[in-house]
């Protein structure tokens, strides 16, 4: 019989319930602020000290390797080279002798173009595959067959079709970026909660409204996961592709420095490639967080 309560007493209860969450955090904070501060200190220590220890260990191992191996540069030598290199990253002596900044930007540009084209084709195709079962069955086997193929295997086809190195490298990026985007978009569209689709049916929304108001926002986190995977792979592939095609670009630069037997530069390039990849990943993670909607239960 607890449902049989005075309506007057129910109203303030509902109001209080909605106001409570804003009040709650203050109390525990005041009560054990010292304990919490201590916890915070140890958490920051974990965040900063532990990675530093890891890095120090890596440098130590590196140093030990160089002791018995004269061809391998010591950490100190590499650091000095890096300072020299990054003090002037944007110089241009000849097409084959440009600063590391230009090389990184050239690679990033190829990734952006190849990836952008892949998004333009892959996301709409993913929508179709996820929404129309026939299209899904049509492309399913083809995608399963082509997805495991290394994008570099497509490079000769690109060279054949485009007769030029740069578009061929972009073509490889396009191929490697498109699969995660198609698949994740399709999965996202298929996983739109049935509740939302029922809302669309009851409101009798047009296909365009269903697409823009329900499918797209609901599938967006999946699409962004696809984008993140694509960018990650694209950044892996561009280095290899550029080693094969030549020109300006961080991959070619690594290969060029190998031909010059400039090992410190190769190590610097490895770190720089890793750093750029990390930045791309973090940027896309932030983007994904901004567009992930809370799945509200009740």
């Amino acid at each position: 019989m607890n449902a049989m309560l005075k309506p007057d007493s129910a109203e303030p209860a509902a109001v209080a319930a909605s106001a409570a969450p804003t009040r709650r955090p203050r109390r525990p904070l005041a009560a054990n602020s010292t304990a919490r501060a201590r916890q915070q200190v140890s958490a920051t220590a974990m965040k900063i000290v532990a990675p530093l220890v890891g890095a120090a260990l890596l440098v130590l191992v590196w140093q030990l390797i160089t002791v018995n191996n004269a061809s391998f540069p010591t950490p100190m030598v590499t650091l000095q080279e890096a300072i020299k290199l990054f003090s002037d990253p944007f110089y241009r002596n000849s097409p084959n002798d440009q600063g590391i900044g230009w090389n990184l930007l050239a690679s990033l540009q190829r990734v952006a173009v190849g990836f952008g084209l892949a998004a333009l084709v892959g996301i709409p195709l993913g929508f179709l595959i996820g929404r129309v079962q026939f299209v899904g069955s049509m492309f399913g086997p083809i995608i399963s067959l082509l997805k495991p193929v290394s994008p570099l295997a497509w490079l000769p086809i690109g060279l054949l079709v485009f007769k030029s190195a740069n578009p061929a490298a972009i073509w490889s990026i396009f191929i490697c970026s498109i699969w995660p985007m198609i698949i994740n978009t399709a999965v996202g569209v298929q996983r739109v909660p049935q509740d939302y689709m029922n809302v669309a049916r009851v409101l009798n929304l047009s296909e365009w409204k269903v697409l823009t108001k329900i499918l797209l926002p609901s599938a967006l986190p999946y699409i962004l996961t696809g984008v993140r995977l694509s960018i990650g792979t694209a950044w892996l592939v561009i280095v290899a592709a550029e080693m094969l095609t030549g020109g300006v670009g961080i991959g070619f630069w690594v290969w060029d420095e190998w031909n010059n037997l400039n090992v410190p530069h190769i190590i610097i390039a490895i770190v720089a490639i890793g750093f750029v990849g990390l930045l791309l990943e973090q940027a896309l993670m932030a983007l994904a967080r901004a567009f992930t909607y809370e799945q509200v239960s009740n």
């Binding site: 509740d195 939302y196 029922n198 809302v199 926002p217 509200v296 009740n298």
Partner: peptide, 20 residues
Amino acid sequence: AGPSPERSVVFQNHSLLPWL
């Protein structure tokens, strides 16, 4: 013959679109 706004439904779990 099918769903229609003239028979509107209040769903058990409210089914509001969280991005609106």
